[in-house]
């Protein structure tokens, strides 16, 4: 995949993800409706490729207003990935020389890889994750399970032990998937399934779309390095 194709595909997927998030704000408060209507308009311009790179610059500027409005990301990690992708794409497009453009897209792809690896690393250092107890606590009392029925999973220690090691193993092994295009695609398929499960069980739908949007950047990075 070329730099231009990866950059363009990432910005289209990101714009679609931001439209999905923005629509969710349109049923609530008037100030939010105004803010997110502007964001939808800019995202449409990005998808159409109109006036590039200025709609992206506008979205980056608007992201600061939204951060101020909610005193931080509205939805934690998923919004942070969206912000990272948005600013990396914007800075990449504003760079006057190809190496500068490559640098910012490579940073985005590398951060995607790190998002899995570091998550796995911090978990495996924690004895509660290694014993399956941490995941049991996520189901038993955290704010994340989408239904009360799901809390019953906390009483399945063997299943949770296997799930804990599967998650940690996948996250820690993810950098190895960069060794070939095929292994990377397989790794990304597993990753997307993981985000899909998180969306279904914990209601974290924004993670699925935000991470998916960045996949072209890491596919380009893999081809650029190996």
């Amino acid at each position: 995949m070329t730099l231009d194709a990866a950059s363009r595909l990432t910005e289209i997927l990101l714009a679609l993800a931001l439209i999905q998030q923005s629509l969710e704000h349109m049923t609530r408060f008037r100030a939010e409706q105004v803010l997110f209507s502007v964001r939808i308009g800019l995202c449409v311009l990005v998808i159409l490729g109109f006036g590039s790179p200025w709609p992206l610059v506008g979205l980056a500027g608007l992201s600061l207003v939204i951060l101020e409005r909610f005193q931080g990301p509205y939805n934690g990690g998923s919004d942070r990935m969206g912000l990272l992708a948005l600013w990396c794409l914007t800075l990449s497009q504003l760079m006057p020389i190809p190496v500068g453009k490559e640098l910012f897209l490579a940073y985005l792809g590398a951060q995607l890889m790190l998002s899995y690896f570091i998550s796995g690393w911090v978990k495996i250092l924690n004895p509660d994750w290694r014993s399956g107890r941490a995941l049991a606590e996520v189901f038993r009392f955290s704010a994340y399970p989408v239904s009360e029925a799901l809390r019953g999973w906390a009483n399945r220690p063997r299943v949770l032990l296997v799930m804990s090691w599967a998650v940690m193993g996948f996250e820690l092994a993810f950098p190895l998937t960069l060794l070939s295009p095929i292994s990377l695609l397989a790794g990304l398929a597993v990753a997307a399934t993981f985000h899909l499960a998180n969306a279904c069980l914990f209601g974290l739908n924004r993670f699925f779309w935000s991470w998916f949007a960045v996949y072209p950047a890491i596919i380009w990075l893999q081809g650029r390095i190996f």
Binding site: L64, V65, Q71, M81, L84, S115, V122, A134, V138
Partner: peptide, 19 residues
Amino acid sequence: PLTLLLPALIPSWNFFDVI
């Protein structure tokens, strides 16, 4: 706003490290 943006540009990615 830039202070709020910084953790997104240099993320820690320590999801669920402790419950």
